[in-house]
Design a binder for these strands. Structure first.
Lengths: 187, 187
DNA sequence: ACATTTGCTCAACACCTGTTGAGCAATCGG
DNA sequence: CCGATTGCTCAACAGGTGTTGAGCAAATGT
């Protein structure tokens, strides 16, 4: 597991292409050839490194607030590695697409109404954008704000987008665990 | 300009690291050494390739609908190259961060109210996420939908997020050019 | 105690990368 | 019509890459 952890770190820091097998071996404190004896190739190691723990999305997808909270805090290494390479490594692109498509389908079923799938996709894409802006691009306002503040503001935006039609019931805010006190803290 | 165009295409397709000078030269129909004689180095060529045409953002940033519409259609090559490498090339990361920070600042000034900058940042990040999902990740629902439908649904979500507090005036939807008829086309 | 398997390292290969400098054809100044 | 500058290609280099196979040391089985 030491090699796999090192791989996730390196892939998460610099992406698939820029990470060398020697980098991973150095961080793991072993010989480069050992890495390939264990995983066969750099690509196979990458595939192993970006595997997400299953089960999580299907349960929590209806509660977008959960996902948002998770994305506000520090990213798990495998997710970090996956997102880092999603634009340049087809393997990562495919894996993330599958992950998000599943999450969108669940969310769409939960919210219902016209354009449910599209509205769900917009919400999930927005969280992806926030994740990128916060943890990778380090966009000034998004990366410096506290987890709570980000979740609070983004929650409002996402719930509004999911509801879309004012007459529609708002599953997102309704099923959020804490009732989010509306103290007008404007400072 | 033929070399620069080829560079934008290649960088936009595979990212900075995976694109070789020889690839660019081949697409431009010239010798690899000519590429470097013109631009000095691969990194310098990349910097030139991701330069965005200036002026656009400052005027249109207040009207987020414009930006969204632009992002729904095909991306200009330099923007495509920039976004493709934003997670793996520091040069691209810095350039895009600067671009988005400026846009956020303009938008924040336009909407005002509490958390203006954060709400603006959330909206801009959401558009970034939509751009990635549509043009790069090719997320099923987001990439297959028509430009108009995407703009319609995403506009509602973004405007709601920007307003945030129900009593707040909604600059985003108010300044949108077309009044967006609400025909209940649920098919 | 010995043979065998295992876990690991060392050294090297073949390939591809960015980059450079010599050379060639054409254009231009006089 | 000649010399010089330009625009380009050819060939090569030095360095880094993924990957491989030989070898070594410790553990294991009997």
């Amino acid at each position: 597991m030491r090699i796999l952890d090192a791989a996730r770190q390196e892939f998460g820091d610099r992406g698939f292409a820029a990470t060398t097998v020697r980098d991973i071996a150095r961080r793991a404190g072993v010989d480069p050839s050992l890495v390939l004896q264990h995983y066969g190739s750099k690509a196979a190691l990458f595939t192993a490194a970006i595997q997400l723990p299953a089960g999580e999305p299907s349960e929590a997808a209806e509660h977008l607030a959960e996902v948002l909270k998770v994305r506000a805090g520090p990213l798990p290494p495998e997710m970090r590695a996956l997102v880092r390479s999603m634009l340049t490594a087809p393997e990562a692109s495919d894996a993330l697409r599958g992950h998000l498509d599943e999450r969108i389908a669940n969310l769409a079923a939960a919210i219902g109404g016209p354009d449910a799938e599209l509205r769900a996709a917009v919400a999930v894409s927005s969280i992806l954008g926030l994740t990128v802006a916060r943890h990778f691009l380090r966009l000034r306002c998004v990366s410096s704000v506290s987890d709570d503040d980000l979740v609070r503001v983004a929650s409002r935006a996402l719930s509004a987008g999911l509801a879309a039609l004012p007459s529609q019931p708002n599953h997102f805010e309704a099923e959020s665990e804490a009732p989010q006190r509306d103290d007008g803290d404007a400072g």
